[in-house]
Design a protein around this nucleic acid. Structure first.
Lengths: 326, 326
DNA sequence: AGGCTCGGAGAGAGCGCTCTCACGAGGAGT
DNA sequence: ACTCCTCGTGAGAGCGCTCTCTCCGAGCCT
């Protein structure tokens, strides 16, 4: 009834516990015949190593914490994709994934204590924002940490991200090339680096083309996009294009434009950012910039498993996907 | 530099390791003065219990596995909501969340071994489908298991779910009450209980009203909803209403209807199921049945922490949300 | 005053594993 | 033939914690 121990395996195979341990851990210095005997015993007894005992002595846990800061909207379309992609990569590397939600100060504390307590071999930080104390706190522990998306500048963490500035530039340039003259922007919250970078790309292109910026702020949700679009229509009734920093906000903007009787793309062209599934099903289908989620996940896990102290961030290209909204 | 041990705490407080352990674990039988001394030592040294050592002896891990079967679409809007809701509840209960993705036979195996290996105190199964061997496999281990959503009938697992049949009934009844005469259905995959239950509710209401069913099959994705809608327009060009088993499929159906030049709701009324955020931003906003995600999550965690062997499933009501598409 | 109970603290045995070190056998070198 | 390695195995000491068992002293009853 009890789970078999290494001792039992060793006894059955007629070897010492040390040798059984060697076999289980894949040591090369064991005679083939003995190794086979041990493996047979493992199989027959259904032996599974006790990870508590193992990590008690090795001081490694084989687990990686995936820390998620609560975003404004619970229903984040990329969350699912990112978590799955990162999860798949980690499992591929034989790591367990410990999911931690950190939204409140108590939550930050819990995560910090947990990580400092040596319960995980590494940390992946998802979607941090300005007030987030975790990057700084975790940098102090000696556990490898890597961020998904550029963290706020105060923390010097390694990170992987897509080229937010470049993607935004491509979006803005695309709108100008289509002959749009008054290109507005729905920006993300200024305390989130992704939002800032996308705004920067837009501004850069517009000022290079000698056009005035027209900006409203959102918080990455559909609702805020809809509200921002209403604001933009008031501030610049002559606008003929909008670039939103996320697809969700672009979708909110489409909603507002529809209610305001503006046709897309005839009257107003709309471009989003992220290329979520939903973008192909809006009316009209949304032109957007694709965030290479899977590639970023791969890069993150690779870098976490082989940490290089002062490496440059990994930035992956974000490509424009042209559909019918622009 | 090393992390302090209980021994160090005890030494600093001038007590034995046993007493320090008692204090750390909140035993009542310790003198107040001594307890304070120990707590002070804990604080000063920044002591964090070593969970490996602890679970080595207690045989409990304080961790719950959240097992996710890969759905057809990676970008599942409810995934984020469910995972967050369950995660929040578990953290509230002081449990760690170990996320495991199980999509391949190798993945199922990994999960089964992991759970059977005693690495977690309980398992929550998300979105199982017909071929999924996990419910049966995990039922054999002696670890408490609970499913989110009714598992396939072959496995006798406790579960929590929303009232899929009742919700579907409400949707179908609503369409009939609005005077629709030819109500079609876009059903989910037959190997997923949620899909089957929603189909059953629809069928029941239609046959009670003496109306013929008109059914096309999808796999819960937008794309499949769009395809199913095309099929329905061929099979029943006279249809004037569609009930889709998920909002995503309803959104796909809206897409197809728009392309086919049918106005919603004037020509065809559309009702979905789940009430994802996106449903409020479709054109027109989607009438749907709300899945009470947070309540289900709460029920799941509560039942997992206090397992009752042969308890009835917990079924929570799913309410109709009427918007403009019907 | 002596024996009793009983609450509260300490001693110590493990939990299952890894890893260092010691050891023995066999082969190569002189 | 003897020493010196080398390679493979076994013995055993812990890793940090919990928990049972023992022990001590204070209060109560007779």
């Amino acid at each position: 009834m009890k789970r078999p121990t290494l001792e039992a395996v060793a006894a059955r195979a007629g070897v010492s516990r040390a040798t059984a341990s060697r076999v289980v851990n894949g040591s090369e210095t064991v005679h083939a015949k003995i190794r086979d005997a041990v493996l047979r015993a493992v199989d027959e007894l259904g032996y599974v190593p006790n990870s508590s005992a193992r990590s008690l002595v090795t001081r490694r846990t084989g687990a990686i914490a995936l820390v998620v800061s609560e975003p404004p909207s619970a229903e984040d379309p990329l969350f699912s994709v990112i978590v799955r992609a990162v999860g798949r990569e980690l499992e591929h590397a034989g790591k367990q994934v410990v999911l931690m939600l950190a939204s409140t100060p108590a939550g930050y504390d819990r995560v910090e204590r947990y990580v400092a307590g040596g319960h995980v071999d590494g940390v992946i930080l998802l979607s941090t924002h300005g007030a987030d104390p975790l990057p700084a706190a975790l940098a102090r522990t000696h556990v490898p940490v890597i961020a998904h998306g550029r963290p706020v500048a105060t923390a010097r963490l390694p990170y992987c991200d897509c080229d937010n500035v470049g993607g935004a530039r491509a979006a803005a340039r695309h709108l100008l090339e289509r002959g749009r003259r008054r290109v507005a922007n729905i920006a993300g919250p200024p305390d989130m680096p992704a939002g800032r970078d996308r705004l920067a790309g837009y501004r850069e292109v517009l000022s290079a083309a000698d056009r005035r910026s027209l900006i409203a702020m959102g918080d990455f949700t559909r609702e805020s996009g809809a509200a921002a679009m209403r604001q933009l229509l008031l501030d610049g009734p002559d606008l003929d294009a909008v670039f939103a920093a996320t697809d969700l906000m672009a979708i909110g903007a489409l909603h507002t434009l529809r209610r305001a009787g503006r046709r897309v793309p005839d009257d107003v062209a709309v471009v989003g950012f992220d290329d979520i599934d939903e973008a192909r099903y809006t009316d009209p289908p949304l032109t957007t910039v694709r965030t290479p989620v899977a590639a970023v996940a791969r890069a993150i896990v690779a870098r976490l498993l082989v940490p290089e102290p002062f490496a440059e961030p990994t930035i992956l290209p974000a490509d424009l996907i042209v559909r019918d909204s622009s």
